[in-house]
C-alpha cells in the first residue's frame, strides 16, 4: 500500500516538466559553484597547503566546502518547497484526496507513502549533486569516509526538510502557500544559529538544522545529531498524520 502510493508519487513528479527543470537547473548552477571551488583550490589553496605541509586537501576544501555551500542549501530548500506544492496540497486542490480517504488506507500509510515518494525524488537530486565532488576521484584521492559522512548529513538534512514540506503541504490546499510556508520555515530553521552570540550559540543554535549538519561535514557521525534529525522528521510526520486525521473530520 505504502509502496503503491510512493511509486505513484515518484512517477507523477516526473510527469510534469517542473521537476526535470529543477534537476537540470540546480545541476547547472551547482556545477558553476563546484567548478569555482575547484578553481580556487588549484590556484590559491594548493600551493599554500604544500608550503605549509598541511594535512588538509581536496576533501575538506572542495568536497565538504561544496556540500556546506549556502547556494546548495538554498537549492535544496527550493526543491523541497516544490515538493510541498505537490504532495498533499495538490491532491486537495484537484479533489483527488477522497480517492485515498475512501480507500482502505490509514493516515499513517498515506503519509509514509507520500513521504517515501518525495524522498525518492530528493535522493535522485542528491545523487546528481554528489556526483560532482565524487568526480574529483578521477584526479585525486579523497577521504571517502569523511565524504560519506558529509553526504549522510546532507541526506538527513534533506529528509527533515522534506518532512517539513509534507506537513506544510497538509496544512493548506493552496500549493503556492505550501511552498512558501516550507521555504520560510526551512530557512528559519537553517538561520537560527546566525546572530547568536557565543561559540556554542545556546538553545537556538541547538534547535537549528545546520548546527547538526556541521559535524557530519567534518566526518563525525554522532548519535546525538542522528537522533536530532530522526526525531524532528518523525515529529513532523506525526504532525502530518494528525493533520490528515483532522482533515477527515472537517473536510
Amino acid at each position: 500500500m505504502i509502496g503503491a502510493i510512493a511509486r505513484r508519487e515518484f512517477k507523477a513528479l516526473f510527469a510534469t516538466p517542473l521537476p526535470w527543470l529543477l534537476l537540470a537547473l540546480s545541476q547547472a548552477l551547482l556545477a558553476w559553484v563546484f567548478l569555482s571551488r575547484v578553481e580556487a583550490y588549484q590556484s590559491q589553496y594548493q600551493p599554500l597547503l604544500v608550503t605549509l605541509g598541511s594535512g588538509y586537501g581536496a576533501t575538506e576544501l572542495v568536497a565538504a566546502a561544496f556540500l556546506a555551500d549556502a547556494r546548495l542549501l538554498v537549492l535544496l530548500l527550493l526543491a523541497v518547497s516544490l515538493l510541498a506544492m505537490r504532495l498533499l496540497a495538490e491532491e486537495r486542490q484537484a479533489h483527488t484526496l477522497p480517492l485515498l480517504l475512501a480507500a482502505p488506507v490509514s493516515s499513517l500509510q498515506l503519509v509514509l507513502g507520500k513521504y517515501l515518494g518525495g524522498l525518492a525524488f530528493v535522493l535522485v537530486a542528491l545523487l546528481l549533486w554528489a556526483a560532482m565532488p565524487l568526480s574529483l576521484l578521477l584526479g585525486t584521492a579523497l577521504d571517502l569516509g569523511r565524504l560519506a559522512a558529509a553526504l549522510l548529513g546532507l541526506l538527513l538534512l534533506a529528509a527533515t526538510l522534506l518532512a517539513l514540506a509534507l506537513w506544510a503541504s497538509a496544512l493548506t490546499a493552496r500549493p503556492g502557500l505550501a511552498a512558501l510556508l516550507t521555504f520560510a520555515a526551512g530557512l528559519l530553521l537553517m538561520v537560527l544559529r546566525d546572530g547568536v552570540v557565543g561559540a556554542d550559540g545556546g538553545v537556538l543554535a541547538y534547535l537549528g538544522l545546520l548546527g547538526h549538519y556541521q559535524p557530519f561535514l567534518m566526518g563525525q557521525v554522532a548519535s546525538a545529531d542522528l537522533a536530532y534529525y530522526l526525531l524532528l522528521t518523525g515529529g513532523l510526520l506525526a504532525l502530518t498524520v494528525r493533520r490528515l486525521d483532522a482533515l477527515r473530520v472537517q473536510a
Binding site: M1, A4, I5, R8, A12, A15, T16, A94, H95, T96, L97, P98, L99, L100, A103, P104, V105
Partner: peptide, 19 residues
C-alpha cells in the same frame, strides 16, 4: 477523483493496489 497526469489503465491499476 482522477489524476490528470496519469493514463487510464495506470490509474485504475493504482486504484486497485490501494484496495
Amino acid at each position: 477523483p482522477v489524476y490528470a497526469d496519469m493514463r487510464v489503465a495506470d490509474y485504475l491499476t493504482y486504484c486497485g493496489r490501494l484496495h
